[in-house]
């Protein structure tokens, strides 16, 4: 579904991605792990062009992502952010319908039906007209997931979806992601939740200093005794 070749990205003189080669298959759940600053989030942001990369190629459904209409690409590649980034000027349902109305050109009624369905899916159906600032962190993240789901993207990118949450709220959000994984949607998750990554992922990618160090099954990654870098990383996780 997504094929990445020789991806390089620098910020000023700091090369964050040093030639990434990766493949993400349809209906696959892949977790990307690694230390802070290793390039995980940058890699994710390059996939939906929130960051412009310097070199390399990213193919989505057999076509270079730079050949897509950028807004069309992004509505097919959903993104969930660490800081939720819910639209403060819109209520819960407004956050979910705006993309449907303004991008997919659905009528307000059609958009609301779809939004309610997705909000019910993440357990936020009772909060339709709430101000997003009145929600807890976990609730905000669930609305953010529903917002991404509304456009029915082919893949959802999660950028540390639980890092800004307290332990109670973490479980709330992880349960939603668990259920989504079972539904067969393709997901790429940047996370520091090792237990969760191990449980949910078909594959785990360990990134270190802008390079893919390990790309393997959860069992193989967590039982790796040869790679000093991941051994050290897992020890402190």
């Amino acid at each position: 579904m997504i094929k990445i070749n020789g991806l390089k990205k620098s910020f000023n003189n700091n090369q964050v991605l040093k030639g990434i080669d990766l493949i993400f298959n349809e209906k696959e759940v892949v977790s990307i792990i690694g230390e802070s600053g290793s390039g995980k989030s940058t890699l994710l942001r390059c996939i939906n062009l929130l960051e412009n990369y310097d070199e390399g190629k990213i193919m989505f459904l057999g076509k270079d992502i730079k050949d897509y209409d950028i807004n069309n690409l992004r509505s097919n590649v959903g993104m969930v952010f660490q800081q939720f980034n819910l639209f403060n000027n819109l209520n819960v349902i407004g956050n979910c319908t705006i993309g449907l109305i303004k991008v997919q050109k659905l009528s307000k009624k059609e958009a609301e039906i779809k939004a309610i369905e997705k909000l019910n899916l993440v357990g936020m159906g009772e909060f339709l007209y709430h101000n997003v600032n009145s929600l807890s962190g976990g609730q905000k993240q669930r609305v953010a997931i529903a917002r991404a789901l509304c456009l029915e993207p082919k893949v959802i990118l999660f950028d540390e979806p639980t890092s800004a949450l307290d332990p109670k709220n973490v479980n709330e959000v992880l349960n939603v992601i668990r259920n989504l994984a079972k539904s067969g949607i393709t997901m790429i998750i940047v996370t520091h939740e090792m237990k969760f990554a191990r449980e949910i992922s078909d594959r785990i990618i360990y990134v270190d200093k802008g390079i893919i160090e390990i790309d393997d099954t959860p069992e193989a990654v967590f039982s790796n005794t040869e790679n000093e870098s991941i051994k050290s990383f897992l020890q402190y996780s």
């Binding site: 929130l50 952010f81 991008v103 953010a144």
Partner: peptide
């Protein structure tokens, strides 16, 4: 970023 990520121009 969130707005651009859902395809808004």
């Amino acid at each position: 970023e969130a707005a651009r990520s859902i395809g808004l121009s």
